[in-house]
Simulated scan of single mutants.
Amino acid sequence: MKRSALPASLLALAFALAGCAPGAQPGSSPDSPAGGSGMHTGHGSAPSSAPTAGDHSAADTMFAQMMIPHHQQAVEMSDAVLAKDGMDPRIIGLATGIKAAQGPEIEKMTGWLKAWGEPVAPGTAHHSMEGMMSGEDMAKLREAEGDAAAALFLTQMIAHHQGAVKMAEKEASEGSNPEAVDLARKIVEDQKAEIKTMEDMLPDYR
């Protein structure tokens, strides 16, 4: 009986040392899934932690496609004011801040569309965007000077921001891409605050 028991104990010891219990893999822990290593588990969980190129909806695409030219016009309006001589420092500060905020957002949304495999140009949607200035509006802003230019800039930018807020609110409620929804909420918060600031400033230039 001793001779038959010895091989069995050695076999058990070998399994214990090698960690070769049925279904186990070297380097696995009791908490690891059977047949899997920690490295395999981490790799499999990665896609859920970061959006993929296809992780977007039609609402996300429309938001980015429309907000890019909307932001671009806000930058253009700001440049028109910053090019003028003798403007009130408060207006200069406001225009500079708008450019600093919206320029990087343009780059971010452009990057999303490219990653999603969507066209950057909004096509006919451009004509339905709220708050956009016409060519005539932009010409008036470029030609105005002094307090008249400040008042016109504030009036136009308030309307422009109000249009952006509506677009962003729609994305915040209907979008599916987490980054796009977060940006939409940020735009709503930031531009509502700027609208209030501009409304408070406007009487000083009339």
Rank of each mutant, 00 (worst) to 15 (best):
P30I: 08
L11V: 03
C20R: 06
S4L: 12
A149H: 13
P7N: 00
D190W: 08
P26N: 13
M201K: 04
E107N: 10
S57F: 09
T124G: 12
S28I: 06
G135K: 14
V188H: 07
Q72I: 07
A16I: 02
S9A: 10
P30H: 07
H43V: 15
S134W: 13
P33N: 05
G38Y: 15
E174I: 07
H161K: 02
M201Y: 08
S176C: 02
E171V: 06
M129L: 02
I68A: 04
A12Q: 03
H161W: 01
M62Y: 12
F153M: 09
A12L: 05
Q25C: 11
T155A: 14
G103S: 08
G38A: 15
A16H: 01
P104S: 07
I98S: 00
H160K: 08
M1I: 14
E171P: 07
P104Q: 04
G111W: 10
V75I: 15
K192Q: 05
P89K: 10
P30V: 07
R142V: 07
F63L: 06
G19H: 03
M77E: 12
Q65D: 03
M157H: 06
P7H: 10
K108F: 11
G42D: 15
S134T: 13
A151F: 02
I68P: 03
I158D: 00
E76P: 03
T96I: 11
Q25A: 12
H127Y: 07
W116C: 08
L154S: 05
G44Q: 12
L94T: 11
K170M: 10
M77G: 00
E107I: 10
M133Y: 08
S4D: 13
S28Y: 07
T124D: 11
E145I: 06
E143F: 12
A159W: 01
F63S: 01
F153K: 07
R206Y: 05
A58E: 15
D85H: 08
T41Q: 10
C20E: 07
R206K: 11
A180W: 01
G163C: 01
A193I: 00
Q156N: 15
I187C: 04
T155M: 13
P89G: 15
E105K: 05
L13A: 05
K114Q: 14
I98E: 00
G146I: 14
K192D: 04
S173F: 04
P178E: 00
D55Y: 12
A80V: 10
G35W: 00
L10W: 05
E189W: 05
T124W: 13
A172R: 02
E118L: 06
V81T: 06
L113S: 09
G123V: 05
T124P: 12
F15A: 07
L113N: 11
M167N: 09
E143S: 15
K84Q: 09
K192M: 02
D85R: 11
K170Y: 01
G93H: 09
